[in-house]
């Protein structure tokens, strides 16, 4: 079966600035695919190429078998796109925005209500409120509704959870899961590494290049270096002390712990002794399970 999204050697430059280079990806139908990378990694550029808003300088891409440059008119009928910046009419109400986008796609809210029902029910109490006056989470829900109202086959969501509170973010991902069950292919980008594990497969992207593509667990499992979670009474001094040592390859803050990657496997006691010698107290040290963030930082360092 043909993949839902196929990207072959896509490259894009803005003047002298390279935004994307040699991107190759395949996303299966009905997959929830994540593009994970920091700001400026090229995620938005890739989205704009796939949604036919931007022409690539090199390579080609297909969405549902439609060429992003040649078949741009057809593509626009079958995709839903939610830009990173809130792009609905702020001076129109919730209901007016939804009706407008439904009409533009030649459909009605009633016809596709089943698709947006769960999300729209939460918005219903505010349906006469101007979109500009909604909270961040509500705005995202409305934008998702507008992107879904024409029953797209592929959904492109560019950083849908940026600037949204933790509860709304969790809700949002729940919604995506349910949409996936309907067979809609979803490509979503996020700068939050913790959201990566919610996708079926992810691509780590940095500096316009793809570092790795796989299922989140496979990616974390690929991390073979010894990793420890460390914590002492003095967090900041601990960070500096560990960074000064020869045995540490990388020390990165991770919540209330530090993630310490050592160059070679070494006994935990050896590390504890070192910390004691530096006068640290309340030492807690345990082997850690690698996260996407660890892999990402590692890949960034090696490339």
């Amino acid at each position: 079966m043909k993949p839902s999204i196929q990207i072959n050697q896509i490259g894009k430059t803005y003047g002298d600035v390279m935004a994307l280079s040699d991107i190759n990806l395949e996303v299966e139908t009905g997959e929830l695919f994540g593009l994970i990378g920091p700001d400026g990694a090229g995620k938005t550029t890739l989205f704009r190429i796939l949604t036919s808003l931007l022409k690539p300088n090199a390579g080609e891409a297909w969405v549902e078998g439609l060429h992003t440059v040649k078949d741009y008119k057809k593509i626009r009928r079958i995709i839903g796109y939610m830009p990173g910046k809130f792009s609905l009419y702020q001076d129109l109400s919730v209901a007016e925005n939804l009706t407008f986008f439904a009409t533009i796609f030649g459909t009605t809210i009633q016809e596709n209500y089943h698709l947006i029902k769960e999300i729209y029910q939460q918005l219903e109490p505010f349906k006469n409120r101007r979109a500009g006056k909604l909270s961040g989470g509500m705005k995202q829900k409305l934008a998702l509704c507008c992107a879904l109202i024409h029953e797209p086959k592929v959904l492109f969501l560019d950083e849908p959870t940026t600037g949204v509170d933790a509860v709304s973010r969790a809700e949002f991902w729940q919604m995506l899961k349910r949409l996936r069950e309907r067979g809609i292919t979803i490509m979503v980008s996020t700068p939050y590494m913790d959201e990566a594990s919610l996708c079926e497969r992810i691509a780590l992207i940095q500096g316009g290049k793809i570092l790795s593509v796989d299922a989140p667990e496979a990616i974390t499992n690929s991390y073979q270096k010894p990793l420890y979670a460390v914590r002492t009474a003095d967090y900041y001094r601990l960070l500096n002390d560990l960074r000064d040592t020869d045995f540490a390859e990388r020390v990165a803050p991770f919540g209330e712990f530090l993630h310490l990657t050592t160059r070679e496997k070494m006994p935990e006691q050896e590390i504890k002794d070192f910390l004691l010698s530096r006068g640290h107290s309340d030492i807690r040290l345990q082997p850690a399970k690698p996260t996407i963030e660890d892999v990402f930082l590692d890949l960034m360092q090696t490339t």
């Binding site: 949604t51 995709i79 830009p83 792009s87 986008f101 533009i104 507008c146």
Partner: peptide
């Protein structure tokens, strides 16, 4: 400027 054109442009208008 507001960004709505981005949303409009991906529609079949």
């Amino acid at each position: 400027e507001v960004g709505t054109i981005e949303q409009i442009n991906v529609t079949p208008i």
